[in-house]
Design a protein around this nucleic acid. Structure first.
Length: 411
RNA sequence: GUGGGUGUAGCUCAGCUGGUAGAGCACCGGGUUGUGAUCCCGGUUGUCGCGGGUUCGAGCCCCGUCACUCACCCCA
C-alpha cells in the first residue's frame, strides 16, 4: 500500500480546512485585495535571489528539479517572490498604487516534519505593493489580526519590530557581529553569527539568551526615517485597536524583510508556535531584477491555524452537508427520486438520496447522518396517490404532501 | 542533518514471568414485512509495521530496517 509522502497529509471530508483557508482572507477581500494565483513552481533563481541564497529555506530546504528543457525549477517555498514576479511581469505596478492582492495555496520545504510543520503546507497570504506609507503597514497587520479574531481565536499574540533598512542596518550588523565575537559561543552558533548575526538574537536556549542580555538592538540603532516609520506603524495599530508587543529580538528567516516585521504566535501549538508572519520587503523587487518597488505582506499557516483552533476548542463549521435527503422504496420510487433530487439541486437546494438499495431503516440512518433537515420518503403506494411523506428530522413530525407542492415546501 | 518516543481491527487502545489475538467506538444486519437520532440482540474487519534471530512455541526477548511522532535547527 502506498501512503502519502513524508511530511504531507490529506484533507478529508469534515475538515475545516476550506473555511480556514478562505476565512483568513476574508478581511482582505473586504478591504479590496484582489485574488491572484501564481504557479506552484518558478525559476529557481527567483527564490535564490529573492529569498536569499544564504537562508536555510534556499540553501537546504528547496525542492528543485530540472525540467525536460534543462531549466532549473523549484516548488515555491513561500508565496511573496512569485506574487512580486507576477506583478512586475504584468506591469500591475504601473497602474494605481498600492497593488493589493491576496492568495492561498501550497508551499514546499524539505524539512524534518513535526507538529505543525509539513513539507507541503498551505498558506493564505496578502501583499500590498508600491507604497512605503506606514498606514498601509498598519492596515496589512490589522487584516491578519481581524482574520484570527473572526475565526474565533482569542489567544493569538502579535509581535512587532523594525529590522531597519540599508541606511542603518549594515552599521548595526557590524556592531552586533563585533559584540558576538566577544562571546564564548559554540561552533554552530558562531557559524550562524557569520551567516546572519541577527538570527542569533532569537535563539531559544535560555543560557544563550542570558549571554545576550546586553546585546545591541536594532530598534535602538534605527535611522531617523526608519524610526519615524516604525513609530507611525505602532500608532496606526493603536488607532485600529490591534494589540501588539514590541519584540526587539524578533528575526525572520527570509532575507528580503526590512523595517516593519511581525509575527503572530499561539501558545497551544507546541514548538512551532508561529501561526503567521510577515513584514516589509522594499528591496525585493530590485533583487529579482525589477525596478525599486516597496511592499509589505504576510502569510498565515493554515495547518497551524487549525491547530490553534483545536487548542482553543473553537469549532469552525466544515461542509454544511445537505438540506434534503430522499428515501425511495422500490424501483419506480427510485426513478422518481433521482429526478426530484435533480430539480432540488437545480434550485440550489443541497440534496442527496439513499443509494444502494438498502432497507428503509438503513436509508433513514443515512438520512440522519447526512445532517439533512428534511427526509422525503416515497414508496410505490405514495406515488399511486401522488404524494410523498415529508419528515422533519429535527422533531420527527411527518406529513403527506402532494408531489406538486413538494418543491414549494422545501424552497 | 542530530537526538528521544511509538508502531496490535476503520478509530482510541488493552494484551500478565513468552503458551493459538481482545475491549470500546465505528460499520452492517435484526428487534419494527414502510421510518433515523435512544434502547436491546447478533455480525464483519487483523500479513500484531517489515525482515531476520533465539525458542518446542514470539504481539511480548534480541538484531536490523521502515514508518509515524516529539524536540533541536528552521519557519507558516
Amino acid at each position: 500500500m502506498f501512503q502519502a509522502p513524508k511530511g504531507t497529509y490529506d484533507v478529508l471530508p469534515g475538515s475545516a480546512f476550506l473555511a480556514v483557508r478562505d476565512g483568513l482572507l476574508e478581511p482582505a477581500r473586504l478591504a479590496g485585495y484582489g485574488y491572484v494565483e501564481a504557479p506552484v513552481f518558478e525559476d529557481t533563481e527567483l527564490f535564490a535571489r529573492g529569498v536569499g541564497a544564504s537562508t536555510d529555506v534556499v540553501s537546504k530546504e528547496m525542492y528543485s528539479f530540472t525540467d525536460r528543457g534543462g531549466r532549473s525549477l523549484t516548488l515555491r517555498p513561500e508565496g511573496t517572490a512569485g506574487v512580486v514576479r507576477a506583478v512586475l511581469e504584468h506591469n500591475l505596478h504601473k497602474g494605481q498604487l498600492p497593488v493589493k492582492v491576496r492568495y492561498a495555496g501550497p508551499m514546499f520545504r524539505a524539512e524534518r516534519p513535526q507538529a505543525g510543520r509539513y513539507r507541503q503546507f498551505q498558506q493564505s497570504g496578502v501583499e500590498a505593493i508600491g507604497l512605503t506609507d506606514p498606514a498601509l503597514d498598519a492596515e496589512v497587520v490589522a487584516l491578519a489580526w481581524e482574520a484570527f479574531q473572526r475565526l474565533g481565536l482569542r489567544q493569538v499574540r502579535l509581535l512587532m519590530t523594525s529590522l531597519g533598512d540599508p541606511a542603518c542596518r549594515p552599521a548595526y550588523r557590524e556592531e552586533l557581529t563585533a559584540y558576538l565575537a566577544g562571546l564564548d559561543l559554540d561552533e554552530a552558533t558562531q557559524e550562524r553569527a557569520r551567516i546572519n548575526p541577527l538570527r542569533v538574537l532569537d535563539d531559544k536556549r535560555p543560557e544563550l539568551q542570558a549571554l545576550l542580555t546586553s546585546a545591541p538592538l536594532m530598534v535602538d540603532r534605527l535611522c531617523a526615517d526608519c524610526k519615524a516609520h516604525h513609530e507611525a506603524v505602532a500608532a496606526g495599530l493603536e488607532a485600529l485597536g490591534v494589540p501588539f508587543e514590541r519584540a526587539p529580538r524578533l528575526v525572520r528567516g527570509l532575507d528580503y524583510y526590512m523595517r516593519t516585521t511581525f509575527e503572530f504566535l499561539h501558545d497551544g501549538l507546541g514548538a512551532q508556535s508561529a501561526v503567521g508572519g510577515g513584514g516589509r520587503y522594499d528591496g525585493l523587487s530590485e533583487s529579482v531584477g525589477g525596478p525599486p518597488l516597496p511592499g509589505i505582506g504576510w502569510a498565515l499557516g493554515i495547518e497551524r491555524t487549525l491547530l490553534a483552533l483545536e487548542a482553543e476548542g473553537v469549532t469552525v463549521p466544515a461542509d454544511s452537508g445537505v438540506q434534503v435527503f430522499v428515501v425511495p422504496l422500490g424501483v419506480a420510487a427510485k426513478a422518481w427520486a433521482v429526478g426530484f433530487v435533480g430539480q432540488l439541486r437545480a434550485r440550489g437546494i443541497a440534496s442527496d438520496l439513499a443509494y444502494g438499495d438498502r432497507g428503509l431503516k438503513g436509508a433513514m440512518k443515512a438520512a440522519d447522518r447526512s445532517r439533512a433537515r428534511w427526509a422525503v420518503v416515497v414508496g410505490d403506494r405514495d406515488l399511486d396517490g401522488s404524494v410523498a411523506q415529508l419528515k422533519d428530522l429535527t422533531n420527527g413530525e411527518q406529513t403527506a404532501v402532494p408531489l406538486t407542492d413538494l418543491l414549494e415546501h422545501l424552497s
